[in-house]
Computed example of a mutant assay.
Amino acid sequence: MVNLIRASPVKVKILNNPETNNKSLDLILDKSIWKDSNRGKDIITAVIDSGCAIHHPDLKENIIGVYNFTMDNHGNPNDVTDYIGHGTHVSGIIAASYNKFGIVGVAPESKLLILKVIDQNGVGKYDNLVKAIEYAMNWKGPNDERISIINLSLGGVHHSEELHETIKKARNQGVVLVSASGNEGDGDYTTDEKLFPGYYKEVIQVGSINLEGVPSYFSNSNLNLDFVAPGEKVLSTHLDDKYVELTGTSMAAPHITGIIALALNLLKRENKELNLFSVYEFLLSKSKRLGFPSNQEGNGLVHLK
């Protein structure tokens, strides 16, 4: 078994007022963009992670499907119980509903396909990750919906040819893949830290910054880094209907995933072809360099307005 991801729990904070949402949202978008982007409506993201608390009041309206690839709960494929809260947190960053309480996600009317590959011990197998990506590519919703994005807030330190080929296949099918860069950084941009699948060029690799726009010390630096997003003390959905602040590049990646869900609807309005290249070009046009080496910030911070 290969360690793919570990959550980084910080403090629990329960909210009742949506206006006290995590500040990270304001760093990446002006909420006025929600009108033209329909808040991500009709866009589906496969969240491949530790499962999800699918009955959380901020998430239950936006879960469109589930599948469990682990042996948790006797391997029941329909049970994606999240025992560590990581996948629930990631899901909320992308698509927590705009429902007048709790928090709100980047694309609050987008939908989520929850695919569980990380078990209750916080670890998962490469072959299950491959199966989950293939499942996402072939999945069809109740009205023949298809996914557009895969969020991968996980990774392993070993290259896998099978994983890489599956990533390429998904990309060639038109799926946009977003992955965390990893939390093995040492604060030195001259040293490379690689986490797979994030390091593969077919994936949009996202590093972490704090709310002041400074690269996080722990965030992996390498030449293939694409963008950065908030990853420190990010508030989102968690277990037992609660809201928790977590820190890590796992929190940065879903910010970009949510941005892409909005971008796809904006590109549709402009009658532009929807593919990885048009999406990437759009992200580049909305990104701003923060003054750090490319190894630490890639093309910078994306901000929609």
Rank of each mutant, 00 (worst) to 15 (best):
M1E: 12
D240F: 14
A229N: 02
L262N: 06
S179W: 03
N220V: 09
A252H: 02
H158L: 14
E270T: 07
P293E: 08
G65N: 09
E145G: 06
V130Y: 03
K169E: 10
A263L: 10
N38G: 01
T166S: 14
F227P: 06
R289W: 07
N220F: 07
I209T: 04
I64R: 02
N138H: 13
G198P: 03
V2Q: 12
R39M: 15
N76C: 13
G40W: 06
S50H: 05
I28T: 08
D42A: 10
L211W: 08
K100I: 07
G213Q: 08
V106K: 00
Y280Q: 13
S148Y: 08
K116Q: 14
M1V: 14
A96R: 03
D72A: 09
K194V: 15
I118M: 01
A136L: 05
G87K: 02
I167W: 00
R6N: 12
M71T: 14
V130Q: 05
K60N: 12
L223R: 14
A96H: 04
H89W: 10
N3K: 15
T20H: 14
V206L: 01
E165F: 11
V106L: 02
L239S: 03
G155K: 02
E281V: 09
D127F: 15
W34K: 08
P57W: 05
V104S: 10
T81D: 09
A96V: 11
G207L: 04
S236H: 02
K60C: 11
S50V: 10
L284G: 05
I44P: 00
K268F: 08
A95I: 11
G124I: 08
G141M: 09
L264M: 13
A180T: 06
T237Y: 09
I44A: 04
D26W: 09
A53P: 00
L29E: 03
S37M: 06
F196C: 06
S294G: 06
E165K: 15
Q173R: 14
E232N: 12
E297M: 10
F218Y: 14
